[in-house]
Amino acid sequence: MTDPTTQPVDPEDLIRRRQVDPAAGDIDAPPFSETYHRGPVILRGPMIPQDSTTANLLKAEQSTDWLHMDPWRVLRIQAEFVDGFGALAELGPAVSVFGSARTQRSDPAYRAAQRMGALIAERGIAVITGGGPGIMEAANRGAAAAGGKSVGLGIELPHEQGINEWVNLGMSFRYFFVRKTMFVKYSSGVIICPGGFGTLDEMFELLTLVQTHKVEPTPVVLFDTSYWQGLFDWITGTLEPRGMISPLDPELVTLTDDPEQAVAVATSTIR
């Protein structure tokens, strides 16, 4: 009789037997008998979900926790960029005017911002502000009264009053960083009037981008010398001697008390 252990083995038969019985050979059979495809993702074994993507989508009742998760936030952020680019792409040359929302209409800074908004609009250049009250309202008011493009890019805040009534192109944002991107992308010059933390944030963000050559050189004007001089005395008297900035950095800005000069500098690169 022929010893069965000496019979030649059919390789294909061995593979089939190993898939059914891992003990039939030296190589273990694949441990997973099913494969689930979720888009480009392959799931097997315990990773296979109980419900399909379509079934989850069509459930009548489910938790709304997903509305507050990061993947959904990414879509909202993307939508804000798309909406902002779409709204401003055909705006043309523009100058941003920053300043406090708390400035009263009787304040000389309010009247100066209103004058600067009008002067910018008279040059056929759009005025962009944060869309709120105070300095922002003043610049929008001047631009609208001069028949120009008066843009307000607002932000959702609990205490804000919404877009002021002198804006003729407005948009509100959820995210500060999206809003600031719109300011930088569509402004060829900036005038910064007296303001608080928000104004300082916008100013230093822009100066950092210009200093690090992330954007084209942009004229930056600080209006109201007495308000800003102390800050720049500290910059030149403390930061520069300790090597935190180069001697050229303070030259990134122009300080003035003259609305006409502020507008002339801010629009100097616009043909």
Rank of each mutant, 00 (worst) to 15 (best):
F197P: 00
G170W: 05
T199I: 04
F197L: 13
D70T: 14
P259S: 12
G25T: 06
S187K: 03
P8W: 15
T208A: 07
T238D: 13
V41P: 00
R111D: 12
P31E: 08
L169P: 04
E165D: 15
V184P: 03
S52E: 05
D201N: 14
E216P: 00
Y186G: 03
H159Y: 15
P241N: 11
M182H: 04
G131C: 06
I135F: 03
W166K: 03
M203T: 09
V151D: 03
T225E: 06
G198R: 05
T256D: 04
F177V: 10
A101E: 09
G25S: 09
A112F: 04
D257R: 04
P217E: 11
L43A: 09
D65G: 08
L239G: 02
G117F: 04
P133R: 12
E12P: 00
V95P: 01
G148Q: 11
A145V: 06
G189W: 03
V82R: 11
N168Q: 05
E251M: 09
R141T: 05
L88H: 06
I128V: 12
G84F: 10
E90N: 15
G39E: 02
L119N: 03
E90P: 00
A143W: 12
P93A: 14
M116K: 01
L43P: 01
A146W: 14
A87K: 13
S268I: 04
T35M: 12
R242P: 00
Y110Q: 05
V20Y: 14
A143G: 04
V20E: 15
S226M: 10
P71S: 06
F81L: 07
L91F: 08
L75F: 13
L239M: 15
Q19V: 15
E202Y: 06
T129P: 03
R105P: 08
V9C: 02
H68E: 12
L57D: 13
F173D: 01
A113L: 02
I120H: 02
M182V: 07
S106G: 12
V20L: 15
R111H: 15
G45R: 11
A87M: 11
R17E: 14
M182D: 07
D21E: 15
D26A: 14
P241V: 10
R179A: 03
E80K: 01
G86T: 10
S188L: 08
G25P: 09
D51L: 14
T267V: 08
F176I: 10
L207D: 00
T238W: 10
A146Q: 10
Q261N: 02
I245M: 11
C193N: 02
L88P: 01
P259L: 10
R44S: 11
V215K: 07
L88W: 07
A144W: 14
E61P: 00
L255A: 05
W228V: 08
G243R: 07
F183K: 00
T269C: 05
E202P: 00
R102D: 08
H68M: 13
R73T: 12
F173N: 01
E90Q: 13
N140C: 10
M1E: 07
I270H: 04
R16S: 07
F173L: 10
P93Y: 06
D65M: 11
V97Y: 02
Q211S: 13
M69T: 10
A79V: 00
T218V: 12
R105D: 07
E216Y: 10
L88D: 03
I191M: 02
K59G: 11
I27R: 12
R102C: 06
G130T: 02
G198S: 06
T53V: 10
E260K: 09
